[in-house]
Design a protein around this nucleic acid. Sequence first.
DNA 1: ACCGATATAATGTCTATACATTAAATATCG
DNA 2: CGATATTTAATGTATAGACATTATATCGGT
Lengths: 239, 239
Amino acid sequence: MKQPLHEKIRADFEARILAGMLAPGDRLPTEQELMQEHGCSRMTVNKALSALQSAGLVERRKKAGSFVARPRFHSMVLDIPDLAVQLGERGQRHSYRLTRRQVRGPIAGRDKEAALANGAQLLELDGIHCADDRPLAVEHRLIATRAVPAIVDGDFDSISPGTWLLQHVPWTEAENRISAVGATRGEAALLGIVPGAPCLCVERHTWRGGDPITYVRQVFLADAYDMVARFGPSGSGGN
Amino acid sequence: MKQPLHEKIRADFEARILAGMLAPGDRLPTEQELMQEHGCSRMTVNKALSALQSAGLVERRKKAGSFVARPRFHSMVLDIPDLAVQLGERGQRHSYRLTRRQVRGPIAGRDKEAALANGAQLLELDGIHCADDRPLAVEHRLIATRAVPAIVDGDFDSISPGTWLLQHVPWTEAENRISAVGATRGEAALLGIVPGAPCLCVERHTWRGGDPITYVRQVFLADAYDMVARFGPSGSGGN
DNA sequence: ACCGATATAATGTCTATACATTAAATATCG
DNA sequence: CGATATTTAATGTATAGACATTATATCGGT
């Protein structure tokens, strides 16, 4: 036995639950029974059961006992990494070309821009992402200078503002909206497709501790970019 | 103080890390220092630090100490709930109409169908989802009868096979692929749009303990359905 | 300066115990 | 019978200590 005992107990129940041998609502042994079965102290089984609880697999009620939790809504881990990194993993070369850059105030009537600006100026950066010099996505980005004053001195002629922001101002809250859109005339020209052709659109707002950081809208060439999300048994937060 | 001490310590560091007061790589106090600072035992601070570790916020190395983890790639929790539930939350009425149903073997040459069938038959179910009787998405689904023998007796004339599967055969692994496509002629007719119009396409494979369960391709009317994913400070796996 | 053996500092695991908390079960009283 | 008080079984939290593990640091010898 190389793995610690509490981890063994935890993994054992996880396997049984995921295999369906234990159905939602089933009661599992009390801590007393488990410490006898494994010949260990209560703290050890408690650690195992607590881990299962925080992983959402079991529900524990005082006096009643521990039960297999009924599956809450399946949620899944979707990685939305930096485009440059993601392309690099595929062996493609990422490049970014800036097409527009200006500092301005929020446009009157656009509440979202006003909220993002938060009383200060916005930096507007438009550009295009390429993979191996072929157009991949057009990007429209607004950055709150209030949250990121250093941004106005950034050099984005070749490096992507997304990469810069990730490295300098990691966000703590985000909202992504994924939809299908027809390419506008301008987007189509940049991507080399016909207007109205279907494109994947990702809009993202990010915040840091409640303060808005950036809004970005990326329109991807269909067929060139899919979003893939995988989900599997949670990797145990091991030692 | 209502909350337990280990939870207070954990929340304290979480707040400081998320607020940026502690930068990645920063070292935080040793367990010894923390137990003096809070006047508690080592197990208590250990519990707090272990929780931070399993949440991915800190990294712990023996002899060296505990450090703020450098943000691994931001991953986010994307809820892909049952359509019926999601529409219900919006106050819309969900309905499903079956347009095709057959049991067949995998089509020769389609490796993915063969892998899904896993030596047995496939149940093919095509249908259309509506919100308040307006078309929302067309769905093409293949179900492995080997994994879900009971499915062949299911009545899907009005209830969605996705809902049925979620209730009867929760998956343990899944892969989602989100892309933008142009509606085919048949899809366009069902959705009431012109062929080629941009649609959001979600393809999903699910498994249960390594055995394939189902493949589904859903093509959504653009503008009617966005996928929204939010991410925020992880809700503490509370008591 | 280099390499190897040893010491050391930190986390990792576990025990045995104690008391608190809570919700279910049970008893009690009107 | 029904409402209320009490018991009790289970988890929740915490302590103080012990030993294991391991990466780092230090010391010696060549």
